[in-house]
Structure formats: C-alpha cells, structure tokens
Design a protein around this nucleic acid. Structure first.
Length: 338
DNA sequence: ATGGTGGCGGAGCCA
C-alpha cells in the first residue's frame, strides 16, 4: 500500500469523493488490492440512507459503488512494501493443485513463477487460483514444459517467449512487468547427456536467453526459474565426482556466469554461503531423504534490487509434504516501493 | 544408488 493511499483513506471517505481527488487508475487498483487483502473496509448502505450500512466482503469480480465508504484499517502501511517472490518447478500444476492452493493460502507470496506446469492454456486452473486471490498468466503446452506467473496484482505488461521468435514450439519463457520491474520466468532445458542434441539445445538456449535479457533494463529486472545449472561447488554434494555431469559441467557454469555478467546476482547467496542447500532431489534415488540434490532453481536480480532483498530461503517444508514436486520453492523478499 | 520414481496419456518420452 502506498503512503499517499494510506493518508487519504485513514479517515472514512466516499468512493465518489476519492474519484474527485484521484485521477490515476493505478490508485483504484491499489484500493481494490487493499480491499482484497483486508487492509481496507468497504461500508455499503442499501436502499435509503437511513438503513444501517454493512461491511462488504471482497469477492473476485466485485465492484465499488459511488456511495461506498472506504477506510484503511491497517495502521502499519510499511507492510505493503514487502514484496515476496517465489520460483517453483511444480512438475504439473494439475497434479499439484491441492498442494499449491494450501501453500498459497499459507505463504501469501506476491508473485510466483512456476515451471513445468504441463498444461495447455485452455486447461489452466484460473478459477481455483482466482478464488485464492491470484491472477494467472501462462504459456503452456501439452505434456511438457509450461511456465506461468501467479500474482496478486495485475501485471502491466506480459511477454510470451523470445522476442526474436527463438524456440516457438517449447513453452519455456514468460515475462511480466509489475511495479516497474520486469520479472522473467525461465524453464531452461535439462540437457539430458553431453553427447545429445538436447545438450546443444541447452547451450543454445542459454545464449539466446543472455541475448534476450541484454535487451531489458537490467537495473529493474528479476530473473526466476529452473535454470537446470548448479553454479558453484557448494551447490552439489560432490563437486569432484560431478564435474562432468550435466547441470554442473564447466560450459554450463560458464554460461551461467555470462548471465550474471549482464549485471545480475544470485539472491539466495546474499544470505547463505552454506553447502548442502538444494532445490531439486531425484525421485528415483530418494534423494530428498538423503539430501542428495542440486541447487538449480534460482532468483537473480540487479545490484539495485539485491540491495533491497531482505531474505531468501528454500521451502523444504513444501518438498517434505505428500505427493511433492521433485523441486522445492525458492523464496526471496524485497522491499519494493514504487 | 547405472536402478530407481513420477507425470502425461494411454506407449513411450522426459526429467
């Protein structure tokens, strides 16, 4: 919540009076947002003005009326400056929908970047997510890949895929502009084995991604996703044994450094340099139970934004629940004020 | 842990 909105509605005020003072549409979306979050009350009088007013509970699609009376009830407006983002390879949004909804209700992140949604756009569970208070934007296909953003605020712009048209048959990239920041959600190819065509495709994808991102305003950019690369020795259990393994090979790690060279920083590593902190564990070898995994899901941001990061952590609790994804969500909190 | 599990879709591919 912005400070000016807080001051304007600290005392009760009619919608029509607010409309006279405010010309900006973004102010009204902030009002709806506060209403939805429960930090703003809406009092409505039905029929004649003598009848008692009632508090109107926010529902998706509901509207404010000119005579409604608005009031901020949150006395700590600074809370609205905390912006929580998550990246999570969900490994099928439909098979994980119950876990996703419970987790959203509990964690209330502001923006979630999902990978491997594995669903065509027509079947994306927009209604469930709307009930949970989230807008969805997605780029999906049948069976494989698929990326999506879930966000509490409506994005100002959405971009699907690469602007130069690279790799149109795979849904691995989606970007949104929100609060003046470009959020880039990537599902990088896994690469299979070094000798395979899939590995060449992975390296090509990394080059294309670096070129794509170089066209963005780096200072106001956050890259989130399953990048399928463990960037440092501390991101795998046994760096010597794994030095030729896909996801940890020198050429991949070099490509990762090329991405960082655009002016990006690994937000998780601002807060912890400990080894043994992974975001993915193999189902097949029961890797999670033995903490045998890799840190391959990342949140990267500019110097300007990483200075505003207040924490970053891997949500192991989510991964330890029944029927989990093979990846855990990665959280970062920023104090973003627009 | 060179086997194993899990998701999709209805056999085999992908991770």
């Amino acid at each position: 919540m912005s400070e000016s909105l807080y001051h304007l509605l600290k005392e009760p005020k009619k919608v029509q009076e607010v409309q006279k003072t405010l010309k900006s549409a973004s102010f009204f979306s902030a009002i709806y947002e506060a209403w939805r979050k429960g930090t703003l009350t809406v009092q409505r009088t039905w029929g004649n003005t003598d009848s008692p007013s009632r508090t109107v509970i926010y529902k998706p699609g509901c509207c404010l009326l000119p005579d409604d009376i608005l009031q901020i009830i949150d006395t700590i407006f600074e809370q609205g400056n905390n912006f929580t983002v998550v990246t999570w390879n969900i490994n099928s949004i439909r098979s994980r929908i119950a876990l996703l909804l419970d987790w959203l209700a509990e964690k209330q992140p502001d923006l979630v970047a999902l990978q491997e949604t594995k669903v065509e756009d027509v079947h994306f569970p927009i209604f469930d997510l709307q009930q949970a208070g989230y807008h969805s934007v997605f780029n999906g296909q049948k069976s494989y890949n698929g990326v999506a953003f879930l966000c509490k605020e409506v994005p100002d712009q959405i971009r699907i895929g690469f602007r130069n048209g690279f790799d149109p048959e795979n849904c691995r990239l989606i970007s949104v502009l929100l609060r003046g920041i470009w959020f880039i959600n990537v599902y990088l190819p896994q690469g299979q084995s070094v000798s395979s065509e899939k590995f060449a495709y992975k390296l090509e994808f990394l080059e294309q991604l670096t070129a794509e991102l170089s066209e963005y305003p780096i200072e106001k950019m956050i890259v989130l996703g399953d990048l399928n690369i463990a960037p440092e020795d501390i991101d795998v259990p046994d760096p010597t044994a794994m030095k030729e393994m896909v996801s940890f090979r020198p050429e991949e790690r070099a490509a990762f450094q090329n991405l960082l060279a655009l002016g990006l920083h690994d937000v998780f590593r601002k807060f912890s340099k400990e080894s043994g902190q992974y975001t993915w564990w193999d189902y097949r070898t029961r890797g999670f139970e033995r903490n045998d995994g890799m840190r391959i899901d990342h949140i990267l941001s500019s110097e300007y934004l990483i200075e505003q990061a207040t924490q970053s952590y891997i949500d192991l609790e989510n991964r330890s629940k029944a029927k989990p994804s093979d990846h855990a969500p990665v959280f970062s909190c920023f104090t973003i004020i627009e």
